[in-house]
């Protein structure tokens, strides 16, 4: 009686056929995966373009709302009572707040599509820190926060995109003010980065506020992430601020990080490579 021994080695021709068919199956899987990746990338690009378009289109009606309200505020159509004026100012502030959030989404969308470009100039970081401090004066006063600025002697001017560096400082300072209870301290420092690969500027934005748990240090730099994302969270916003800050710092060839623990305040740092003056 004959039987087929399953342990009998198969012929080389049969092996070749099996490995050919496996290879074909793998190639087909690879092609399917590649097509899927291409499809997802195309959808992601569409989403980014949509965000950019919608952000831009939202500016027009917001312009109408804010300009009409400013006309009323400035008494162009007649004097207003103090309470009417207060109400109109509320419309303008709300409109400007919305506008800044729309701007944030637009900047994020441009960053995601790699459409952000640097417009470099030479400037002193002191000017940017003082400008941001002045812009936040009324908020600091309202919360009775003490702001100090400390800049290392002889710090050279930097070559970078002034507006974008100001955006980063403005965002970090805004967060510091937002997350520090009344009566606390906020500080801005600038100096040379000690351990950087190349000569770099180091900027610190610190506060004596609520702090951030270690496990959330990476999360806060991710898009749309907020440590507390419940609807009743005390701090609102697009959740894009730090993602954008990171993108803008990285565009300059620098890096950004946080040192903080819950209850001990936060210190945000970023570096910008220094290029020697010509």
């Amino acid at each position: 009686m004959s039987r087929v021994d399953s342990a009998t080695p198969r012929s080389p021709a049969l092996d070749a056929t099996t490995s050919d068919s496996r290879l074909a199956a793998l190639e087909s899987q690879l092609a399917a995966a590649s097509a899927e990746i291409a499809e997802l990338r195309a959808r992601d690009a569409l989403k980014t373009q949509f965000l950019a378009n919608i952000s831009h289109d939202l500016r027009t009606p917001l312009t109408a709302v804010i300009t009409h309200a400013e006309i009323l505020r400035d008494g162009i159509l007649g004097d207003l009572t103090p309470r009417q004026l207060e109400s109109i100012r509320g419309i303008i502030s709300g409109g400007r707040q919305l506008l800044s959030q729309v701007g944030e989404i637009l900047t994020y969308a441009r960053g995601a599509a790699n459409q952000l470009t640097l417009v470099p100039s030479r400037f002193a970081v002191r000017d940017v820190l003082e400008q941001m401090s002045a812009l936040n004066e009324s908020l600091l006063k309202k919360k009775r926060l003490v702001l100090s600025i400390d800049i290392e002697e002889g710090l050279p001017a930097i070559d970078g995109d002034r507006e974008k560096i100001a955006h980063v400082v403005g965002n970090l300072l805004g967060n510091a003010i937002d997350f520090t209870p009344a009566g606390g301290r906020v500080w801005l420092r600038a100096g040379h980065a000690v351990a950087a690969d190349c000569p770099s500027l180091l900027v610190e934005v610190g506060d004596s506020g609520v702090g951030i748990a270690t496990e959330h240090h990476d999360l806060i730099f991710r898009e749309f992430a907020q440590v507390d994302s419940t609807p009743s969270r005390p701090h609102h916003g697009t959740g894009l601020g730090l993602t954008i800050a990171r993108k803008l710092v990285e565009l300059h060839g620098g890096r950004i990080w946080v040192e903080s623990q819950l209850g001990t305040g936060s210190r945000f740092f970023f570096t910008v490579p220094l290029r020697q003056a010509d």
Binding site: T60, P61, T63, A64, T67, H68, I71, I76, L77
Partner: peptide, 15 residues
Amino acid sequence: DNELVSSALRILFES
């Protein structure tokens, strides 16, 4: 081309 914006600018410049 946005009438809401142009009407605001009209009021503003006519003032």
